[in-house]
Simulated scan of single mutants.
Amino acid sequence: MVNQLQGMNVSQERAAKSYNGYVMLLAMLAAIVFFIWTVANGAPPDGASKAAKLMFVGSLLVGIIPFLLIVGGFFMIQPNQTAVITLFGAYSGTERTEGLRWVWPWMMRKKISARAHNVHSEKVKINDLRGNPIEVACNVVWRVRDTAQAAFDVDDYKEFVEIQIEAGLRTVGARHPYDDMNEEDETTLRGSADVVNRELCEELNERLQVAGIVVDEAGLTHLAYAPEIAGAMLRRQQADAVIAARKKVVIGAVGMVEDALQKLSADGVIELDDERRAAMVSNLMVVLCGDREAHPVVNAGTLYQ
């Protein structure tokens, strides 16, 4: 971001000098009363001298001009709202005081909201770290921190935010794989939501610093494989799930067989040689790991016949 700011005059917010609008409202009412009194009591009679008529016109202007100056300078500031004030194109300051305020009418006022904004981005198609096409979308909560930068350092700060959200989402999405295909302990978009959301928030804050905007919260709201590979990836995930389930079943079955053999030997129920032990282990593993119900076969002879 430092490289992006080189060669550009960076603005910085400062407090504006404005006046209490209610005091100026009383002054405007006083000007109106003076104007009415002048019209009612100061009108020159017919045949009055030219000097008297000029004096009457001057009295009217004394009431009209202050009224016009005062009425054009009122503006209202709501909670969490600001007004950027400029004088003939030069930045004069930002007013954040709530209520009725007043400045000279030739000073321009541009209101900028300091409230939190919520943006839900469109789905963006990108390639993850392994080159797989995926679709992602995010939700971002942002607000204006420096009104001078938002007003003068970018052309349209709201459009700037939307473009940078998409750019930041593409950058963060390309840093990590969608899923951990190799069963390694690495950051993935699907399994490391906290890490990815934190990186996205940091990326957006860095990009939006030039516009005086801070991101309070950012997180992925949509994550899926692109339609062209979604079917193949679903079958892979199903296969991974079956393998993981089989592995767990086999590990459990081995423990159960080991416990059964130790129990039989400890209680002296039966003495098994190596061949019979192998046969029993084989039968128990088939029963415990098989997908179908086991059908025992009664052996009327011995294992040695």
Rank of each mutant, 00 (worst) to 15 (best):
N3G: 09
Q6I: 06
M8P: 01
S11Q: 10
A16W: 09
S18Y: 02
G21R: 02
Y22C: 09
L26S: 09
A27G: 08
A27M: 08
L29D: 03
A31T: 02
V33L: 14
V33Q: 08
W37C: 07
T38V: 08
N41Q: 13
N41P: 00
A43Q: 15
A43P: 03
K50F: 15
L54H: 12
V57F: 11
G58C: 08
G58H: 00
L60I: 15
L61M: 07
G63S: 02
I64V: 15
P66S: 02
F67M: 06
L69T: 03
V71I: 11
Q78R: 10
Q81K: 10
G89C: 12
S92K: 11
G93K: 06
L100Q: 08
R101T: 14
V103L: 15
K110L: 12
K110W: 07
K111L: 04
K123I: 07
N127S: 11
D128N: 11
E135F: 01
C138E: 01
W142T: 03
R145S: 11
R145K: 11
T147K: 12
A148M: 04
Q149V: 00
F152G: 01
K158Y: 05
K158C: 07
E166M: 05
L169M: 08
V172C: 09
A174L: 00
R175H: 04
D179N: 14
D180I: 03
D180Q: 05
M181I: 15
N182K: 14
E183S: 13
E184V: 00
D185V: 10
T187W: 04
T187D: 08
L189I: 06
A193Q: 15
V196R: 06
N197W: 04
L204A: 08
R207F: 07
A211G: 12
G212V: 08
D216Y: 03
L223E: 09
A224T: 12
A230T: 05
Q237T: 12
A239F: 06
A239M: 12
K247L: 04
V249E: 03
V249L: 08
V250F: 00
G252K: 02
V254A: 10
M256K: 08
A260M: 11
Q262G: 13
V269D: 14
V269S: 13
I270T: 08
I270S: 07
R277D: 09
A278V: 03
A278D: 07
M280W: 07
S282D: 12
N283V: 13
V287W: 00
D291Q: 15
D291E: 13
H295W: 04
G301V: 06
